[in-house]
């Protein structure tokens, strides 16, 4: 304000302002930079901290940490209550990792195919009126909290699936596991329902951004609508499909609560050799395991084990974001933003 009235007190103020100018700029840069560094330090601190806490468990078990070194449920019970003065670290997370890979992998693969087709439908084939309500609905579904999906799963779908399982089948495996409606297939299904809206929204966005010149050029050559979509639009949006799949994988890996609610809650590796029973076997992914043993964090050995699980999740998430970054590059070449 003062500088705009230079007549009266203009000179000294202007001089003062000139003095201040470079300093304000410098100060702004320094303050903003400092805040950024602070945030970065927090993040780096978090990563380092998680790894340092996880170290005892990793160093004790070596590569066996990732292997199958016995019944995980019993191992975790012993870690929790060793019965001796010495803490017990013996742990092999294979069952949990397999449960994670199975649920996440199947959900993402199925979800990617489904979302691609659904996005094509949304962008190209749906009637105009349906298209107009579908777009906001999908973005709403993408924001529905996972605990709501978990609630529907555990109260509606699990009893329904449970009733479908025959008594004979339940008795055939009664000594090892109990078959209920809560199993890996249901968990995977709900996981897929959860990530499909996210992926569909991303893919549909990319499909809409395909330059019109390409789709019209293809149409002008007498190629039908499906082939134009498939050979031009989907081809161009391929990086977005992968990016969407990567994002969905991250969500699925990190999903703890919903999976803790519907996956069956016991560390077990569903075995494809079991035939049809395989689909009904319970499991418990990595993230859900942390929720299960959250009360045990006061115990250093249990805490180290859980931080080990957290570290594995963290590394997977980082690998995924590097993957997403690599995949996004070709998009930029065509001038398409994800």
């Amino acid at each position: 304000m003062a500088t705009s009235a230079p007549t009266a007190t203009g000179r000294p103020l202007a001089a003062l302002a000139r003095l201040r100018e470079p300093w304000t700029d410098r100060r702004a840069e320094l303050v903003l930079g400092a805040v950024s560094c602070f945030v970065l330090a927090l993040i780096v601190g978090m990563v380092v901290f998680v790894f340092s806490k996880a170290w005892p468990s990793f160093s004790h078990n070596g590569l066996g940490w990732f292997g199958d070194t016995g019944n995980v449920n019993q191992q975790m019970d012993r870690i929790q209550q060793p019965g001796t003065a010495e803490p017990v670290y013996d742990f092999g997370a294979f069952d949990l990792i397999w449960g994670t890979v199975l649920t996440t992998g199947v959900a993402v693969l199925f979800g990617a195919a489904f979302s691609t087709l659904a996005a094509i439908f949304m962008v190209e084939f749906a009637p105009e009126s349906l298209r107009r309500i579908l777009t906001p609905t999908v973005s709403l579904l993408a924001a529905v909290p996972s605990v709501i999906y978990g609630l529907i799963g555990i109260l509606v779908l699990a009893p329904f699936v449970g009733d479908l399982i025959s008594q004979d089948r339940k008795e055939s495996v009664a000594g090892v596991i109990s078959l209920t409606g809560e199993n890996w297939l249901l968990a995977t299904f709900i996981l897929a329902v959860m990530i499909i809206p996210i992926m569909t929204a991303i893919i549909a966005q990319a499909l809409r951004q395909v330059p019109r010149g390409w789709t019209e050029g293809a149409a002008a050559l007498g190629v039908n609508r499906w082939r134009v979509m498939w050979t031009i639009s989907v081809r161009t949006a391929r990086p977005a499909i992968v990016a969407g799949a990567v994002l969905a994988t991250g969500r699925a890996l990190g999903e703890a609560i919903m999976l803790a609610m519907v996956s069956g809650g016991t560390a077990f590796a569903p075995n494809p050799v079991d035939g049809l029973t395989f689909f009904l076997e319970p499991t418990r992914p990595l993230a859900a395991t942390i929720v299960f043993y959250r009360e045990g964090l006061a115990n250093p050995a249990m805490a180290s084990t859980l931080y080990g699980i957290a570290a594995v999740l963290l590394v997977s998430a980082m690998a995924l974001s590097i993957g997403a970054y690599v995949v996004k590059q070709p998009m930029k070449k065509y001038g398409i933003r994800t």
Partner: peptide, 25 residues
């Protein structure tokens, strides 16, 4: 670039990991 990647890492970190990290801190 480091700050950018850091923000990216947080974006990908599962909230359960944030939760147990926070508890220890």
């Amino acid at each position: 670039r480091a700050v950018e990647s850091g923000v990216e890492i947080v974006a990908g970190t599962p909230s359960i990991v944030l939760a147990i990290f926070g508890l220890i801190i």
